[in-house]
């Protein structure tokens, strides 16, 4: 197993290296540069200023040259400075990351806490009224546009009822644990509503598929109780595709909550990455996106390990998987 993890980690490093170039090139190939944007917002900026600033920020150099300089610096432990925030990239990213971790972990745990029982219940009682109700709610969660839901939540709980803060991470000037928790509620609910629909559907489908398998019938024939059959035999097997989906969505959980973060003025990774791309802040955009890539890769390694735990037939001994 340890050899398997080591090989996967090395593969991940290669993927990261390739991704770093792809991301750098994509950001670099976007039309215009930050100086163009500055020219449009400052009537006093002269063409001479623009040329000087392009040289100062190194934007006048070819893309590959810039990338290589960046890569050498990163390999030497220097992640560079954010052009937009005029501070080291890791210093800038820190608070955004903490905010995202709070939001995502909470939303993720809540989603699973709702999706697992709801999906299992729906699978065990297919075509029942409750199953239909769960399906309806799932489709509603998947279909409702995130920005609209966010706005409705703000209007309901902040404007009409006035019981929850509409934006931010905490009340200005600090705020304790409870205050921060209050600020997390609406963004968490928004994200959870969206992801819980997906997860529930996956759990339901996977569980129904597993319940039709021969080994479940065998377990029942052996006299195993309903709870034991569901939790011990069916669920573990049903979770394998669910784990895959969760692992794949892990990176997007950190970088893809842009709309939610924008609507709630919540300074998280998604908004940070978006702003850095739009502002041609190469260093920050790269590190942010690479971090999301790394999370996805690590989550997938975690998923591979989880497969072995969930299904003893899966083995990572030399010679590949066997069943």
């Amino acid at each position: 197993m340890s050899r398997f993890v080591l090989v996967r980690l090395m593969e991940s490093m290669i993927v990261l290296l390739i991704m770093s170039f792809v991301i750098y090139a994509l950001v670099g190939l976007m039309p215009g540069d930050p100086i163009d944007l500055m020219i449009n917002s400052d009537p006093k900026l002269t063409p001479a200023d623009a040329a000087r600033l392009r040289e100062f920020y190194g934007i006048d150099k070819p893309l590959t040259e810039r990338y290589l300089a960046w890569l050498i610096a990163v390999l030497g432990g220097d992640f560079g400075n954010s052009r937009l925030h005029a501070r080291p990239v890791l210093d800038v990213m820190g608070p955004f990351l903490v905010n995202s971790v709070n939001l995502m972990v909470l939303s993720f745990v809540l989603s699973l806490a709702i999706a697992l029982p709801a999906g299992i219940y729906a699978a065990l009682n297919p075509h029942s009224r409750t199953d239909h109700a769960i399906n309806l709610l799932c489709f509603a969660g998947i279909s409702i546009p995130v920005f609209w839901l966010a706005l409705m939540l703000i209007i309901t709980f902040s404007v009409i009822l006035g019981v929850l803060p509409a934006s931010g991470v905490a009340t200005v000037g600090g705020g304790g644990f409870l205050d921060r928790a209050m600020h997390l509620i609406l963004p968490t609910v928004t994200l959870t509503v969206f992801s819980v629909g997906h997860y529930t559907r996956f759990v339901r489908a996977s569980m129904m598929e597993t319940l039709r398998q021969d080994f479940i019938r065998t377990a029942r024939a052996k006299g195993a109780g309903r709870t034991r059959v569901v939790l011990r035999h069916a669920l573990r097997n049903a979770l394998i595709p669910v784990v895959t989906i969760i692992a794949l969505s892990f990176g997007t959980l950190f970088s893809g909550a842009l709309i939610t973060e924008t609507m709630f003025a919540y300074p998280g990774m998604g908004k940070m990455i978006y702003d850095s791309i739009m502002g041609s802040d190469y260093n920050l955009a790269l590190i942010g996106l690479l971090f999301a890539t790394l999370l996805t890769l690590l989550a997938n390694i975690g998923a591979d390990i989880a497969y072995a735990w969930l299904d003893p037939r899966i083995s990572y001994k030399q010679g590949g998987a066997s069943s």
Partner: peptide
């Protein structure tokens, strides 16, 4: 004086109405 940044104008409007 506190200057709060809310990137989305619809949310900005809602924040004004809510008193935030």
């Amino acid at each position: 004086i506190v200057i709060k940044v809310i990137g989305n104008t619809a949310a900005l409007e809602a924040n004004l109405l809510s008193g935030s």
